[in-house]
Design a protein around this nucleic acid. Structure first.
Lengths: 124, 124
DNA sequence: AGAGTATATGAGCAACTGCTCATATAGTCA
DNA sequence: TGACTATATGAGCAGTTGCTCATATACTCT
């Protein structure tokens, strides 16, 4: 009923320990943004495709199964997040991964493949 | 102008290679859901707090800096995603990490700390 | 049983996301 | 130069997210 626990902390020492383990405000926001970049199926496909090597927007659209326009929007997002870099060659813009650790990160996430994790209905 | 590249693929062989490297539809959705669970600052704080050990809802609310109600909603989300497990002791419900790999995953993500990554304004 | 505490949950709302569509920009080639 | 191609970008919309508020549930203690 009351939306504040009457006792400030149930376990002050554990809370203090946890609080010390947390990174600063800015780093938490950066981390969340980085995960947000990976939290969309289309962006995930784009990034995984780029693990195999440089690809142009049109290629990426084809691999990810979305329109070139949507692809370009996603790439702008990823560029701002500094996860990819681009290089123009004539008419065509080639994208590549900017962060080599991404590959390991994605592999790590796939390892954590929990059987029976619920899907596509997590929100709510 | 045209929203489809006239040539089906600019680089058919690269596209084919990338396509083969992608996991199946279901796994991509699962992965995206897993990253979505990590893509919120409050949930991130909750999970990082739990790395230090078991904590009750009230503790977690205090550490994450959000209301117990919001905390409970997040915990339900994380429970559905099978990232945390709970244990009731009397009046108090204790949460702990369900996936030991999470810790490594979070560390990996922090490694990828790119200097100058833009924050809090990635969307749009 | 009845008051009190911790947690869970549903409704609802403001903010955000990912898409499409229209249009702009940058380059190629005749 | 002008037609064409690849990519970028802004507006706008439907669906989703994360919060609060009200309420429900589960337990404790007297």
């Amino acid at each position: 009923m009351e939306d504040r626990c009457t006792i400030t902390h149930q376990h002050p020492e554990a809370v203090e320990r946890a609080r010390r383990a947390l990174p600063g405000e800015l780093e938490v926001l950066e981390l969340a943004d980085r995960f947000q970049a990976l939290a969309d199926p289309s962006r995930l496909r784009i990034l995984m495709a780029l693990i195999t090597g440089e690809l142009c927007v049109c290629d990426l659209a084809s691999v990810a199964g979305i329109s070139p326009s949507a692809t370009s929007h996603h790439l702008r997002y990823l560029r701002k997040a500094r996860l990819v870099r681009s290089r123009r060659h004539g008419n065509v813009v080639y994208y590549r991964l900017a962060c080599p650790i991404l590959r390991g990160l994605l592999e790590k996430a796939r390892e954590c493949a929990l059987p029976g994790m619920e899907v596509a209905s997590l929100g709510k």
